[in-house]
Design a binder for these strands. Structure first.
Length: 194
DNA sequence: CCGGTGATGCCCT
DNA sequence: GGGCATCACCGGT
């Protein structure tokens, strides 16, 4: 029997609400009995009504996981070499997700450095494709239930609103009306993306 | 520190 | 065939 708390937690939330809720929560990746742990410090909301969202034009083979149950992982491949990971949110049939943009290293850094082939702590997890490389996450995890090892999302206590900064999204060309601030980050963190 | 750019393949039109 | 929810490296400042 799988843990339904993740799905329950996120199925009734909007993408922006979930983007804030995920700040401070932890990703636990188990590889060969070792745990690689990162604390989420930066996220970005992608709603179905957003022209920049993969789900905007409806369901396709690539984005179908976004339209499934909440608490699953949507992984996509981009720029010919990078993977990005999102937490699916909202009810089944509605295409919404939250991109994980940066993590703060918590445990298992030695393996993360090997996976990344770098040595600067600030460069380890501060970008959506950097963190998937560090945690060895690829398309095999597309649709994965985050309540289950070897890749789990741990819900931490809700942070105060004053702990979260909102800003414009990064790397988005479309959505000219994007006055809203859909990028959430942990205030004061030194592990944010650029 | 900053901007420019090449790498590289899949998805959708 | 165009474009991409990116990254690393390079050169100029």
């Amino acid at each position: 029997m799988s843990d339904l708390s993740l799905e329950n937690e996120f199925s009734a939330m909007s993408a922006t609400e979930a983007a804030a809720r995920l700040i401070g929560c932890e990703i636990v990746r188990t590889i060969a009995n070792q745990q690689l742990i990162g604390r989420i410090v930066e996220t970005e909301a992608y709603d179905q009504g957003d022209p920049a969202s993969h789900s905007y034009r409806g369901e396709t083979p690539r984005n179908s996981v976004m339209f499934g149950p909440a608490g699953r992982l949507y992984v996509y491949f981009t720029y010919g070499m990078h993977y990005c990971m999102n937490v699916v949110v909202g009810p089944s049939g509605y295409g919404a997700a939250v991109l994980i943009r940066a993590l703060e290293p918590v445990a298992g850094q030695n393996i993360m450095y090997l996976n990344r082939n770098i040595s600067d702590p600030r460069q380890l997890l501060n970008g959506p494709a950097k963190l998937t490389q560090a945690l060895a996450i690829n398309k095999q995890f597309n649709g994965h239930n985050l309540a289950i090892a070897p890749l789990e999302l741990k819900l931490n206590p809700v942070l105060a609103n004053s702990d979260i900064n909102w800003s414009r999204r990064i790397g988005i060309k479309e959505a000219p009306e994007d006055i809203r601030l859909w990028r959430a980050s942990l205030k004061g963190s030194s592990y944010l993306s650029k």
